[in-house]
Amino acid sequence: MKPPPFAYHAPTHLDEALALLERYGDDAKVLAGGQSLMPLLNFRLSYPSALIDINRVAELSYLRQENGQVCIGALTRQRTIEFSELARRQLPLLHEATTLVGHLPIRTRGTIGGSLAHADPAAEYPTVALVLDAELVLQGPGGRRSIPAEEFFVSYLTTALAPNEIVTEIRFSPAPRTSGWAFEEVARRHGDFALVGVAGVIDTEGEQCRTARLAAAGAGPTPIRLRAAEDILVREGVTEQGIQRAAAKAAELVEPDSDIHASADFRRHLTEVLTRRAIQRARERGQEQRA
């Protein structure tokens, strides 16, 4: 389990990193926290001719409020987000999801940009980005562009990122103060990738549901936004029946695979259970917020 030979570059500025990426094109891999890339290299499942280590690119590591948005530099560690007061207050769903990411050593190295660019559909961050309608800022030789999370995730481990681009920033618009949130997941063990996870942000008043945003992890080739389930909630409200029907719809919307840990059927079943639990808990939290 030693990686194949590769050239190693450790630029200190984003421009430098982008120039290297342009030079190698498809042949280079960007190394951030390394929590997915290094195993792939050590298993010799990936043979890049160069690694561009962006860990020294300090300008990519920040967490700040800007024009009512929370902007997080791509190199920001999960552990930083876990302990960020700003993230906890403004993005409580992201904060809660962070505590479910792997184990302490993984969160200490793992970055938000790395997790999104790797695009494992069972990971927490892609689902959070999707449910919170985050914008990803990508930078390439031609400049910057920004892309909504929903367009970013293309398929399993595949994104809209061009080979010569780097994710530089993730922008979140905080949900209204009155909304509640929940990230519910089932994993075989603490810290494992979720068999299924469901993230929800809903804004309710009594049984009325003003807005609902729901997405599932581990239930398809990308994180899946559960729009038809959201519609049911808004239409029928957070009544027992509305919640039940939304959860049942969620199970229809997902496209899970079978593997040695869970069958597609079981993942569908879990999607229903976790959607219901996420809605209920988000609703309770929303009520607490208002109180």
Partner: peptide, 24 residues
């Protein structure tokens, strides 16, 4: 330990071969 019908080991890392940790 899971082998498929072709005799390939499907639990070749600790991501797939699950040992309980202190949390379990």
């Amino acid at each position: 330990v899971v082998y498929d019908d072709a005799g390939q080991l499907l639990t070749g890392s600790l991501v797939d071969y699950l040992v309980p940790t202190a949390s379990e």
